[in-house]
Amino acid sequence: MGSRVSQAIRRPRAFTSSYLMNQLVLRRPYVVAWWSAALPGFGHIMMCKYATGFLLMGMELVINVKAHLNSAILYTMLGEFHQAKITIDLRWILLYVGMYGFAIRDSYRVAIEVNQLYTLSDRGDAPIIPVKISALELNYLSLRNWRDVVLWSFLCPGAGHLYVNRIPTGFFILGWYLLVFYQSNLSRAILATFQGHFALATTLLKPEWLLFFPSIYGFAAHDAYLQAVELSKMFKSEQSRFLSENYQHRAIQLSTLQRKEVK
């Protein structure tokens, strides 16, 4: 027993708080790097490194908006290179370069190392606390339906994270979603589009904010999906561990059967 406890402290698998169950996860490093490239900070959030992720997301928001980077991307993609050049704010843009490179490279490194930690904890069979209750929230392992998670994330990015009880991520993604949805004037543009006023919708939209939207939308669904799958898996392994420890006193039934058959 003593050896298991010390092993648990050295190579833990998960930390249970009432606001989230933070855990080591297995992720493909290239997928993590891709999400960092889509929006710096997302890769770290995917690896459950939330403080780092939120910091990078905050920097991304400030620098991108101040440098008018999204507008410049839009003009570049549309072939209006001169317009792109005069749109970019030279006072801000160089700040982006180092942060962007770091986010991608570092999340790739983190993914590889956390995968190794995950493997170590899995082989050591590190224990998991299945329920945690605090004054304001409660958190427990259970089977989560990934279809529900994806549906809620598409209807309201961030809601899927609330479903899998990852309150900090839910808070940040909901906040970003709210800000981007409002600032890009998306609500009015959607209404105009569905009333057939396509030209009006296009002029209403603010590209420097709208271009954040696809990344938030896709990432919220992807990350929440992975967390749902992971939670279900952890529920199963925790339950399996509990049952094996408590309900395998003896295999009397089968040996009795054999004796009877021999007679």
Partner: peptide, 23 residues
């Protein structure tokens, strides 16, 4: 999720010049 994001981004960007708009 990944292709969805990429295609959505492209749709939004080129929607600014296509008739039906970015939405």
């Amino acid at each position: 999720f990944i292709f969805g994001t990429v295609f959505m981004l492209l749709g939004v960007i080129y929607g600014f010049v296509f008739k039906w708009g970015p939405v």
